[in-house]
Design a protein around this nucleic acid. Sequence first.
DNA 1: GAGACGCTTCGGCCGGGACCGAAGCATTCG
DNA 2: CGAATGCTTCGGTCCCGGCCGAAGCGTCTC
Lengths: 238, 238
Amino acid sequence: MTNMVSGITLAEIASLMGDVARANILSALMDGRALTASELAWHSGVSASTASGHLAKLSEARLISMARQGRHRYYRLASSEVAQAIEALMAVASVGPKRHRPVGPKDEALRRARTCYDHLAGRLGIALADTLTERHYIVLSDSAGAVTDEGRRFFCDFGIDPDAGSGRGRALCRTCLDWSERRPHLAGRLGAALCDRLFELGWVERIKDSRALAITASGQRGLAETFGVREPSQVSGD
Amino acid sequence: MTNMVSGITLAEIASLMGDVARANILSALMDGRALTASELAWHSGVSASTASGHLAKLSEARLISMARQGRHRYYRLASSEVAQAIEALMAVASVGPKRHRPVGPKDEALRRARTCYDHLAGRLGIALADTLTERHYIVLSDSAGAVTDEGRRFFCDFGIDPDAGSGRGRALCRTCLDWSERRPHLAGRLGAALCDRLFELGWVERIKDSRALAITASGQRGLAETFGVREPSQVSGD
DNA sequence: GAGACGCTTCGGCCGGGACCGAAGCATTCG
DNA sequence: CGAATGCTTCGGTCCCGGCCGAAGCGTCTC
């Protein structure tokens, strides 16, 4: 009976995540967007009333946060810590008995480019991380990362302030294991800022009802010019 | 019903960690040592038979691994991924409604120096990380880290090969948030190697029935000379 | 070999909690 | 205003899974 203090609460948190419906809710929120209660009910495969109960529990434990908007209630993950914990659990879950190569057909869009909580993942995420590493703007040592002085300048030029919001608690530069590519990509505050900037520039857009991203025509150009990233067979609705 | 594939297994893992007894078992194993079934039964506060059931489930899910030794069975965490997931959950758990400042009297030993899975934590862990950073042997950017070329040489001289076991999957250099100091310290393969080396040199020793460490007389000297680390009022049984 | 010890398996008990449908509040729209 | 929509609360059902003690099996000791 050594360290009960945090132990008991550890169990509470894990238990919250350990219900299938709630895990589905959290997974659905892993793309960083806010979803309504009924959307989440659909994602988790339970009735609206049951989902509502789950959402109340998750809110009370501060795993998710809620914002009223008209007659809707939008829920999102409460913090990047929560997202990290879920990531870490997924990493544990994804090893072990490899169930089946999920070569989904429509997964292709997800594999190409998607959001992962608040940063970019998929082949696009990997390609950007590779370019930034090649040019020594960032240094990724396995699961860890740091920004170089050169990199700092580059990001400033690109419209991102690497030092913005250096409030404590959130890593500037960290990595996140990509489930499709099985390689680390750029996460942390910097990853989030880069993702935001790409949206802002109109280089990527969300595909409806999905975490997948479409690369726009201007995005094609911009990514090629600025990052030397070139995705073949990229067709976008834009 | 988007990404069920990993979602369902995420819930299984979290659910395993979400039982109080099992969470206590995992917490007890967080110092990286292997413990017997009966020790774990005691730690988790349940009967031997109940604990045995929990251990079977945790083993089957590959969260822990077992080694027979005479009539004992030693259990340990199966991988650093599992330890990281637990850490991440603790980080989520430790925020929120701050229950009570746990100014335990015998916690003092833990706060001074302890193991955290397979690396060093507490004031000793922080002090070492600080020195290594000051001398530019490592670069820690919030939760991430990297080793410099200088650092590589230093660690070699100190009897640690930073490139040993660069098998994939385990980060060489990462950080881990210290619950007592609230600051990051050195984890990853390098953190583990450093910890091992300190044991090997006889600079630190485990305190019985605890994750806490005692710094030996030779450790006092060595840490002061090599790292400039000086802990006041350090009394050791050695 | 007999006994002590460590651990697991088995059988039975019991409570927590996930679930749904119906009813109750809000909010928006006609 | 009344109707439709989004969400939550309530009441009741049901099953999963944690718990223990007793018994079984393997290992070490005398």
